[in-house]
């Protein structure tokens, strides 16, 4: 028991230190690097707190994708910042305020502890046999609270369309060299295999569409950073189809049930497992496409959203 206490204390202290680094380090570049380290540490903390699904997602999305995104967005020239005394004062006051708020929040939290098993988690375990999948987190995400997940896909779609509308994709960095190409050739099939494994695994163990999609998107990041290998060519229609696929499958499966007199998103028990796998497959492809596009920072094809169509300008 004592040993775990030491481990926990170390983890918490490291979390706070890395968070402080990524909030207050002198240059943006350092802050981004601290942030990536923070993300990796967070993944370890999730594993410690018995949340392996989150550990997978955090390593792939939180540290990996967000980190790559932030690194790519770093301005090339570092502006030198000089802080005036007034700014310093505001800084101290705000830090003081934050400390005060944190103390209040922690004090409030102590009134809540210990949080023990309540109704909902018991309810989840009790109904798990009707969910079609045996992994509780997947059951919550894809069955009990499927509406959340559906809207979350919509959030991701919305961000992606927003990104696509703004600008063409970032240019690939210069070619990283032959050794990197070799690594990419090894990694790429492994990443795709891992994604498939995570997707399949989600039904009964940690994993699922989000982790699988993120791993596939990581493959895009690797390809893009390598600079030597080109992304597979898509047509605009294919791109739009891939974007819409996950949500479309999800909604159609949900609505079809309505025709049989059941609730929206209610899967028949015998079919639940396969329907969830179907939805997750579509979602994985969509999530991978969307996260890749968000990372690339725009449309990879020149004529987003529709090629050569400005004929009715005169309206």
């Amino acid at each position: 028991m004592m040993l775990w206490w030491v481990v926990d204390l170390t983890l918490c202290a490291l979390m706070i230190a890395l968070a402080a680094g990524s909030l207050f380090a002198a240059t943006l570049r350092r802050r981004v690097i601290f942030f990536i380290a923070f993300g990796l540490l967070t993944a370890i903390v999730w594993a410690r707190l018995q949340a392996p699904d989150l550990a997978l997602a955090e390593a792939a999305i939180g540290a990996g994708l967000t980190g790559a995104l932030l690194l790519a967005a770093l301005p090339t020239a570092q502006p030198t910042e000089h802080k005036r005394d007034a700014d310093r004062l505001i800084e101290w006051v705000s830090l003081l305020l934050a400390a005060l708020l944190a103390v209040v929040l922690i004090a409030v939290l102590t009134t809540l502890l210990p949080v023990v098993d309540g109704d909902p988690s018991l309810a989840v375990t009790a109904r798990l046999s009707d969910a079609g999948v045996s992994h509780p987190v997947t059951a919550v995400l894809l069955n009990f609270r499927a509406w959340d997940t559906l809207l979350e896909l919509a959030v991701l779609l919305c961000a992606t369309i927003g990104v696509l509308n703004l600008a063409p994709a970032r240019k690939a960095p210069r070619h990283a060299g032959a050794l990197a190409d070799t690594l990419i050739r090894i990694l790429l099939p492994l990443l795709i295999l891992t994604a498939g494994y995570l997707l399949w695994n989600g039904a009964f163990a940690p994993g699922g569409a989000f982790q699988a999609g993120a791993v596939l998107a990581a493959a895009t990041v690797v390809l893009h950073l390598g600079g030597g290998v080109r992304l597979p060519p898509f047509s605009l229609a294919q791109l739009r189809g891939l974007l819409a696929l996950g949500l479309l499958l999800f909604l159609s499966v949900g609505l079809v049930q309505l025709a049989f007199g059941q609730a929206l998103l209610q899967y028949p028990l015998a079919w639940a497992g396969s329907l969830i796998l179907l939805i997750e497959t579509g979602a994985t492809l969509s999530i991978a496409t969307m996260l890749s596009l968000v990372y690339l920072g725009g449309h990879p094809l020149r004529d987003w959203p529709v090629a050569g169509d400005s004929r009715d300008r005169e309206i």
Binding site: R145, D148, L151, A154, L157, C158, I161, G162, N165, P305, V306, D309, S310, R311, D312, R313, E314, I315
Partner: peptide
């Protein structure tokens, strides 16, 4: 007036609408 702008607009427009209706009809804090 520009049809390209409308192509960009409509999906986002309807996503905003779905957020509005989903919010008004939702009965769950998360």
């Amino acid at each position: 007036c520009d049809s390209q702008a409308r192509y960009r607009l409509w999906p986002l427009w309807w996503l905003l609408a779905s957020a509005l209706y989903a919010l008004l009809l939702s009965g769950d804090l998360f």
